[in-house]
Design a protein around this nucleic acid. Structure first.
Lengths: 167, 167
DNA sequence: TTCAAATCGGACCTGTGTTGTCCGCTTTCG
DNA sequence: CGAAAGCGGACAACACAGGTCCGATTTGAA
């Protein structure tokens, strides 16, 4: 479907929220303000921090902070941080495990211009373009999953998942 | 990972094969010449025929035929035929299933420029660009690549780099 | 007329990838 | 010294795509 993962979408939302709030924000706080589950937000922030897009401050009174303004972050960077390198096909960078069965692939290596075009298109758009100048107060983005399965769920902490309307 | 499905890759291969052979080709014949499993080729051809890219001739002595020359088929059309509409996120201009719970998503509707940019980039590339001028037969194990194109743009990209490097 | 070849349309099962969650550890502030 | 918060990893469950097969229909040829 040529679609990117939901985590990337969450990352954009969290990043936009981070810019709107400004300063240092905690993962639970961002989760509450964005309506995404806390562990998911933490996961996204973690990947973002690993990619250098946000800066994580440990310890009490810690949190996350934007390393660069949104206008200076191209969308492609977020996608790379969350979803990995941008490549439409598996036949990139060698691919000695896919098409080796017959080596009849006539388009072998021809996808590079396509990937480059996509990458260029994604790099031309910054997060500021996505978030917009006006950052509306976003209290909820999506309802992840009802979490009906209780097989491995150990309610030790019994944390209320996220109900933006209930809270 | 922003990757399109393998079926689309197969479709490009089959289409290129169809152009190289010319005339009417049967699905088993294309499967043999392309190295793809017969049922898979049949499935791809079926979708391609449904999209109007190829013409299926039923009955004995039947087969598939290109409805248009490859140069007149943009890559985006193949992707749409196989993978469905091009949309990076589920929050595309309809989105009556995901974010409708709150409709407060700050990036709601902002993905459209991205989708359009991707679509434009994909539409600017024709299948003829992917299949190459005439090098559709690289069945020899000794001759892996004709090297008629300028592909070696990224020599080393095996590891998921954290930094997007120079774009 | 009858048979064979090939497409058409659908349903089915399996595998990979993504998603979402949790746990323990480390670090820092009060 | 205790609490808060990030960090790192691993895990199970789910969903989708991938791949296969079946029957039905159509058409050319014997």
């Amino acid at each position: 479907m040529l679609r990117l993962s939901k985590l990337t979408d969450y990352a954009v939302v969290v990043l936009a929220r981070l810019e709107a709030e400004g300063g240092v924000q905690t993962a639970p706080g961002l989760a509450a303000s964005s309506g995404i589950a806390e562990p998911t937000v933490a996961k996204v922030l973690k990947a973002l921090g690993h990619a250098g897009l946000v800066e994580g401050l440990r310890g009490a009174r810690g949190g996350y902070r934007l390393a660069r303004p949104l206008a200076g972050i191209p969308l492609s960077e977020v996608i790379v941080a969350i979803d990995g390198p941008i490549a439409l096909t598996a036949c990139v960078d060698g691919a000695t495990g896919g098409c080796e069965t017959e080596t009849l692939c006539p388009v072998r290596g021809r996808w590079d211009p396509v990937n480059q075009a996509i990458r260029a298109a994604l790099s031309a758009i910054s997060l500021a373009d996505l978030a917009g100048p006006r950052s509306a107060s976003c209290a909820g983005h999506a309802a992840p999953r009802p979490a009906t399965n209780a097989t491995a769920t150990n309610p030790t902490r019994a944390k209320p998942a996220l109900q933006p309307a209930a809270e």
